[in-house]
Simulated scan of single mutants.
Amino acid sequence: VDIGAAGAGPVLVLWDRTRGSADVKIIAALGEQPNYLITSNPNVKTLKDFTKTDKIAVPAVVVSQQSRLLQIAAEKEFGEGKFNALDDLTVNLPHPDATAALLSGSSTITAHFSNPPYQEQALQDPKIHKVLSSYDIMGGRITPTLLYATSKFRNENPRTFKVFYDALNEASQWIESHKAEAAETYIRIEQSKLDPAFVKSVIDSPEVSFTTVPKGTFKYAAFLAKIGAIKTRPASWKDYTFEELHDKQGD
């Protein structure tokens, strides 16, 4: 695998741990989309309402994008240094399984830090409600998923790298101006059984934008450095991104 995709938290850890060796950096973002913390527990309106009987599903405990978001939110809610206040309530579960467990009502899972389109599917059930959004936590729009590669790959394959980067930008711009066609393309390629109108409603949301410019990543980096998850605190978002992005308005 020459190019990978992951959340900002995992990618920043990779950047930190490969500095001076593989030198992993961010190529581009895969758009601005919110992550919702949703629950079936009617008593949970804020993070402080969760109890020991609640279980919050995340893709990977502590290290995933959603887990880091929950830690940032917990520190805001419970106070400085208490970022891990809810870690004991989190359990590993892939998004499809977590969605099914939450909707079934028969599982121990009472909450899910979700991802599009699963969060939108779950919220169609009147028993499910949103507690907060990643945009609330970070104080603005963020790009939750990022593409990354090693500097070695970029240096040894400059033409391939440029073709990929240009094609990604072209695709992002096309989606922004052809959302109905993009939804139909997604259904066809994924052989999905989702309603095309539902898929279009997800990408049509005013909270969603298909941009390749990273947003909100430096706040992650500062948090990870503060709690010791990464050893190096970057001076700027440009430290962990390739130079193709450096003339953009990222952060």
Rank of each mutant, 00 (worst) to 15 (best):
V91I: 01
Q71M: 13
K238M: 10
A74F: 00
P196G: 15
E244S: 07
D97C: 05
F164C: 11
F164P: 06
N157G: 07
E181D: 12
I26Y: 00
I56Y: 00
Y186F: 12
E190P: 03
L86H: 07
W174G: 05
A222C: 08
K55F: 01
A222T: 14
L146D: 01
Y135L: 01
I3T: 11
S21E: 13
A180C: 11
D97W: 07
Q249S: 15
R233A: 11
A22L: 13
V163Y: 06
T18V: 02
F164W: 10
L146Y: 01
L224A: 00
Y148T: 05
R154K: 15
F198S: 13
E184W: 00
K193W: 09
T160L: 14
K231T: 00
I189R: 03
F210E: 06
F153C: 09
I189N: 04
V199G: 14
Q173W: 09
I3G: 08
A6L: 15
K238I: 03
T212V: 15
K219E: 05
T110L: 03
T145L: 15
S236R: 13
E156Y: 14
D195G: 15
G216S: 04
K200T: 12
L168V: 11
V58F: 02
K179C: 04
A8P: 02
E207S: 11
R159Y: 11
E244N: 07
T212K: 10
K226R: 14
E244D: 13
N92A: 04
P117C: 03
P196M: 14
G79W: 07
P206V: 07
L69Q: 11
L89G: 02
N115K: 02
L132T: 06
P126F: 07
K226S: 09
A8G: 06
P96I: 07
D54W: 01
G105W: 05
A182T: 00
D195T: 15
Q33G: 12
S107L: 03
A74E: 08
P214C: 03
I230R: 00
V208F: 08
S107H: 01
P42V: 09
L147V: 08
A60G: 15
A183W: 00
D251S: 13
E80M: 14
P94I: 06
K179F: 05
E32R: 01
P158R: 08
S107V: 02
A180I: 14
D2R: 11
I175Y: 09
A74V: 03
W15Y: 05
Y148P: 03
L123Y: 04
S205H: 08
I175T: 12
P94T: 09
V61Y: 05
Y36V: 03
Y220H: 08
A167D: 08
N155A: 13
N115I: 03
E120V: 02
I26N: 01
L69D: 10
D2W: 09
A8T: 11
K179Q: 09
D239A: 08
I109N: 00
A182I: 03
L194M: 15
K130W: 07
E190S: 14
T46E: 12
D251L: 11
L103H: 05
E243M: 00
T53L: 08
L102N: 02
K162H: 04
A8R: 02
S104D: 04
E176S: 15
V213I: 13
F50I: 05
T212H: 13
P34K: 03
S106F: 05
F218P: 10
P234T: 02
S172H: 15
K193C: 13
E176G: 14
